[in-house]
Amino acid sequence: MKKILIFLLLFLGTLTQALARDSVIVPIGNSATLGPTNAPVVMFEFLDFQ
């Protein structure tokens, strides 16, 4: 019973994190952009060149 509860808590924690990540808001700021300013879809890429 205890193991099931721990599993459920871990599962719910992971699910909560995943749902929270679905609504991430990233400010564009002065970052370099490619594509039209009013594009309906904006894709941010966090990149390491090396």
């Binding site: 990233v26 564009i28 370099a32 952009t33 594509g35 039209p36 594009a39 879809v41 904006v42 090396q50």
Partner: peptide, 16 residues
């Protein structure tokens, strides 16, 4: 084209 905008953010790994 016309529907997607790419925004680049830097995330350099500190030990590279």
């Amino acid at each position: 084209a016309g529907r997607l905008k790419l925004v680049l953010k830097h995330y350099p790994y500190r030990y590279r």
